[in-house]
């Protein structure tokens, strides 16, 4: 059995995919990181202190984990959802009663979204209380604040999509808040967001595009920069 594995790991096909052998020595462990597209965001060695769970509480990583869960469940939800009035609502009903595991899918997306707002906020608190915003990490903190705002906006734009009473009035309350910006700016912002003066189909399409394309793409780029800077600023 063991030799079978060893032959597999030594085979040309395997080696063409993973250039390193089993991560048994420090050399191959380092290779496991820097020969891997996904893992090479990490340095090959990290500070012992920063790996301790009680230092970061894993909150930054979990924020990213939630984002991944949201991307996967979100893509699946998009298969069953049409952003039009009143179809959007009936698609929700179909998810509940017709699509297999549709309700479960929706639940996962919903709870992960709420959790992400909370977890990102807690991550910010962790960074603050460990003093990790101080030079040279100032700008990564700023990127973080933008990420927090984007996380909230992502959650909020998604809130309208089910097109139920909760969605409609939640968004009405929020966009009315935006109207309070003085000198007519608020009215313009609200008009731009809603594509009109009331929350209607135009608003639904705009929120859909923001929620499923613009904001996730922007947030992904910011996260890339955020992670890259964690390393450039000398690690956690």
């Amino acid at each position: 059995m063991k030799s079978l594995w060893q032959r597999l790991f030594a085979s040309q096909v395997w080696r063409s995919m993973f250039r390193h052998g089993l991560p048994e020595s420090n050399r191959t462990r380092a290779e496991a990181i820097f020969y891997n597209f996904f893992l090479h965001i990490h340095p090959t060695k990290v500070r012992k202190r920063s790996v301790k769970f009680s230092y970061t509480w894993g909150l930054g990583g979990l924020s990213f984990g939630l984002f991944i869960v949201l991307t996967v469940t979100g893509a699946l939800l998009m298969l069953y959802y049409r952003p039009s009035v009143p179809q959007a609502y009936w698609d929700m009903k179909d998810l509940q009663y017709v699509v297999s595991s549709g309700q479960f899918l929706r639940n996962m997306h919903r709870w992960a979204a709420h959790a992400m707002v909370a977890v990102v906020f807690l991550h910010m608190l962790r960074v603050f209380y460990t003093g990790s915003y101080r030079p040279p990490k100032e700008f990564n903190w700023v990127i973080g604040v933008v990420l927090l705002v984007f996380t909230i906006l992502l959650s909020y734009t998604g809130y309208l999509l089910p097109w139920d009473q909760l969605a409609f009035w939640g968004i009405s309350v929020g966009t009315n808040m935006a109207r309070a910006v003085p000198f007519g700016v608020g009215d313009n912002i609200s008009f731009l967001l809603l594509g009109g003066n009331i929350v209607g189909e135009n608003a639904l399409v705009r929120f859909y595009v923001l929620h499923c394309f613009v904001l996730p793409v922007a947030a992904t780029m910011l996260m890339g920069i955020h992670f890259w800077r964690v390393r450039k600023d000398g690690g956690v």
């Binding site: 992960a112 909020y156 009473q165 909760l166």
Partner: peptide, 30 residues
């Protein structure tokens, strides 16, 4: 998350109705 999603369902109220304002009208918790 999976366990939570098995236990608690995401809310879905009646279809949006601009004529019928809930009292109070609340934004999401954050």
């Amino acid at each position: 998350l999976a366990v939570l999603s098995l236990i608690i369902d995401a809310p879905l109220e009646w279809i949006a109705n601009p004529e019928h304002t809930p009292n109070p009208a609340k934004a999401p918790w954050y």
